[in-house]
Design a protein around this nucleic acid. Sequence first.
DNA 1: GCGACAG
DNA 2: ATCTTGTCGC
Length: 228
Amino acid sequence: MAFHLTLHPWNVTPAEAVGLQEELRQHIVIEPLSNPPETIAGCDISFNKYEETVYAGIVVLRLDTLEVIEEAGVVTTASFPYVPGLLTFREGPALLEAWQKLKTVPDVVMFDGHGLAHPRRLGIATHMGLWLDRPTFGCGKSVLVGTFSEPALERGHWSPMMHKGETIGAALRTKNKVNPVFISPGHLIDLPAALDLTLRCDGGYRLPEPTRRAHLFVNELRQKGGKE
DNA sequence: GCGACAG
DNA sequence: ATCTTGTCGC
């Protein structure tokens, strides 16, 4: 599973999507990063209320300085509804288009959502990792599945997220006395590395810089340029 | 059967 | 996700 033009079709029914996730989970690889990353990307999607137009974007930053080195955005149409657990089928296609526009290939990619912290262990970070064949992990703002105990209130503390007897991720405090974010491995990375990278992307906000910058990027893409 | 439910 | 102003707390 190293090179492919299409891993699977996207025009599927919700039931078929679940079946694909069950099949794809067999290919997930959780392991320490093979190389020290120098760049990290953040991805996000933006919509206008009641509209199907999708504004997707990817922002690439240098890990050591957190400076933005590239941005790529696309405007498309969503062809799949939002269904908890099937987020990739709604946002994935647009993100893959944006990915193709990048000149820089990020060493690791952070997603706005989960990786293993998913009912079938195939959250958007894991699913996209299989498509991109690149280290990925998720940084969600709320829980989809799993339980966790409140981590200490100081930045850097975390507690494991459990689901069906497995550790699927962690609730991580990225800022003192602020709600934690939920980190989970996607593909080609492990939890310690994902937690370390998230803390290294600190810009003083709850959300790590890659995700925060991607969010700002797609929102201005939607409000300004984009399309009309 | 009822409630929960990434973005 | 999106629609939105002020407001409470550090």
